[in-house]
């Protein structure tokens, strides 16, 4: 797995290539960096040593390779026992209970976990919610699949995380133009009405105050992430 910092890539290329190639490479980095705009929600956007648990083929892991100091894709439990409390950041895509438990073990005290997943209202897979409900009702916790934002929050709270924040990625992860806090209603209302005035803004605010009623939005938001800090021991 290649691992380097963005700074070392840039300086390495500057010394060996023409100005045009350098500009092209910087432009490439800039374009792909947008997949990781969520890193500005962390106290430090330089990602450090990162562990990744999730699908091997994903734009998230592809981009992480370029922007963290080291990236370790966790694909065997054997590796976990040798890297306990070793990572600054653990990134989990489509969490299962096992991923969440393993991710917690890998994280340094004071480190952060970033979880990215989908809600039932994801437009391209509307049936996902039914599957989650079916799994949940049939197998409960043993299904291994946390099925909603409150459920994932509960699981990580039980694992010892205290500071937990959730965010809505609009319109989706790959083309994200807004990241909106899900911890209170105000942010969600503001995110969709701040550019407008008059009756349109009023109607949007009225509609959103219903849709974003505390608690409800957590069940229908289609693309969301959770950032939580592992407390120091």
């Amino acid at each position: 797995m290649p691992s380097f910092t963005s700074t070392s890539i840039i300086s390495g290329v500057i010394g060996k290539t023409s100005g045009t190639a350098d500009n092209q490479f910087k432009d490439h980095l800039l374009q792909v960096s947008r997949r990781l705009d969520w890193r500005f929600l962390l106290p430090n956007p330089d990602l450090g040593n990162v562990a990744y648990l999730g699908p091997e083929e994903d734009s998230l892991v592809d981009t992480l390779q370029l922007f963290c100091q080291t990236l370790t894709q966790i694909n065997s439990l054997q590796l976990v026992s040798t890297r306990l409390n070793d990572f600054d950041l653990v990134v989990i895509k489509n969490p299962t209970n096992q991923y969440l438990k393993v991710g917690t073990q890998l994280l340094k005290p004071g480190g952060y976990i970033f979880i990215e997943t989908y809600g039932w209202s994801r437009i391209d897979k509307p049936g996902l919610y039914l599957k989650y409900c079916y799994d949940f009702l049939q197998h409960r916790e043993s299904s291994g699949q946390p099925w909603s934002l409150p459920h994932i929050k509960n699981v990580i709270r039980r694992l010892g995380f205290q500071t937990i924040h959730a965010y809505w990625h609009w319109p989706n992860f790959e083309a994200c133009t807004r990241i909106i806090g899900l911890d209170d209603t105000d942010s969600q209302t503001l995110a969709f009405s701040f550019q407008e005035n008059g009756i349109q803004a009023y109607l949007k605010k009225a509609l959103s105050s219903g849709l974003f009623h505390p608690g409800w939005v957590q069940y229908w938001v289609p693309y969301f992430s959770i950032i939580a800090r592992k407390d120091s021991i």
Partner: peptide, 24 residues
């Protein structure tokens, strides 16, 4: 706050819009 992440090609920044409590 709301984090805005412009997508036009030349955009090299993200923006944080900071709101007073309750203000649009």
């Amino acid at each position: 706050f709301v984090l805005l992440a412009p997508r036009f090609r030349a955009s090299s920044h993200i923006l944080f819009l900071i709101f007073p409590r309750g203000s649009p």
